[in-house]
Structures are given as structure tokens and as C-alpha cells.
């Protein structure tokens, strides 16, 4: 996708921070043990340290190449915030709705919310698509594979 020195510096620093947090968290919460009898904290702490080191190397490397070569620019690929937001919102809606409301509303939610992320989809098309997929999901998963979820329900508790 993108090969960008500035983005790599940020990523490297983030990874470095994540690694350090893991070391501290593992050290503070889980027994380390000895080298011979390792506790649950030893391996994650070591791994966090390695991760932190790798992140630092990545950031330093990219920083050096940025110094050497000023022509690096921000990525040509756009971060598709709208697509990410709508697709993920669709999946989350499915997760939240399936148990209290059943399969049909959950499928309608994931299909119609995620379909909005492509501008070529029009409301009528989305409705037809949702209808087809509801039938398909019901036939395949409920009647075909006999999975245990209700088609439609109302129990918010």
C-alpha cells in the first residue's frame, strides 16, 4: 500500500510504546519466576521488550531515510474512513442485534449499513439485496445447517 517514511516513524514509535506497556504490565501483574522455572510473566515481558526494540529500529531507520531523502511525501492512498466506519459499524450492529432481536434484523443491519459505504449502491438496490440475503441466510444457516438462533425475537435483557 504505502511506503512512507513519516508514517513509518509514527508506526515505529507506537509499536515501541505498545512493547514497553506490555513489559510493564506483565512485570506488574504476573510472576516472573526464574529462568529454570519461568512464571507466566517471563515470556510476554521478553516479547514486549523485543517488540519495543523492533519498533525503535523501525522509527530510527525511517527517520534516517527521511533525512537522506527529503522527497518522501504523504501517502497517495487515502485512508477510507467512511468505508472503515460503515463496514465495521455493520459488523458491530450484527453482533449487538443478533441475540436480542434475532437473525433477520441482524442480517438487515449488517447488509444495509455496510452497503452504504459504496456510493454506487442506491436505497432500492440495498433493500432488494437485503431481502435476498435474508432469505439466503435463513435457508442456508437456519434450515440447511440447523444453527441455533431465532429468526426474529424480542428479548433485551
Amino acid at each position: 500500500m504505502i511506503q512512507n517514511a513519516r508514517a513509518d516513524i509514527v508506526a515505529g514509535l507506537l509499536i515501541c510504546a505498545v512493547g514497553s506497556i506490555i513489559v510493564i504490565y506483565a512485570y506488574g501483574n504476573y510472576p516472573m519466576g526464574t529462568l529454570r522455572r519461568m512464571g507466566p510473566g517471563m515470556f510476554p515481558a521478553g516479547l514486549g521488550a523485543v517488540l519495543s526494540l523492533l519498533g525503535m529500529v523501525l522509527a530510527l531507520n525511517s527517520w534516517r531515510s527521511l533525512q537522506a531523502n527529503a522527497s518522501h511525501d504523504w501517502p497517495p492512498v487515502q485512508f477510507e474512513l467512511r468505508t472503515v466506519g460503515l463496514t465495521v459499524a455493520g459488523v458491530v450492529a450484527f453482533a449487538v442485534l443478533l441475540r436480542p432481536m434475532g437473525l433477520i434484523p441482524a442480517v438487515i443491519a449488517v447488509v444495509s449499513i455496510s452497503a452504504l459505504s459504496d456510493a454506487r449502491n442506491k436505497p432500492l438496490g440495498i433493500a432488494v439485496l437485503a431481502l435476498i440475503l435474508v432469505v439466503l441466510a435463513t435457508v442456508i444457516f437456519k434450515f440447511g445447517l440447523g444453527l441455533s438462533f431465532s429468526l426474529i425475537a424480542w428479548n433485551w435483557s
Binding site: 453482533a95 442480517v107 444495509s112 455496510s114 459504496d118 454506487r120 449502491n121 440495498i126 440475503l133
Partner: peptide, 17 residues
């Protein structure tokens, strides 16, 4: 644009099951 919502639906139901 019609295929991907279907893909997402299968992903959701598959994971849940």
C-alpha cells in the same frame, strides 16, 4: 458493490456460529 455486503454477512454469521 452487491457482493461485499453478502461477504460481510457470511463473515458475521460464520464467526457467531
Amino acid at each position: 458493490q452487491w457482493l461485499f455486503p453478502a461477504v460481510l454477512m457470511f463473515v458475521c454469521i460464520g464467526t457467531y456460529s
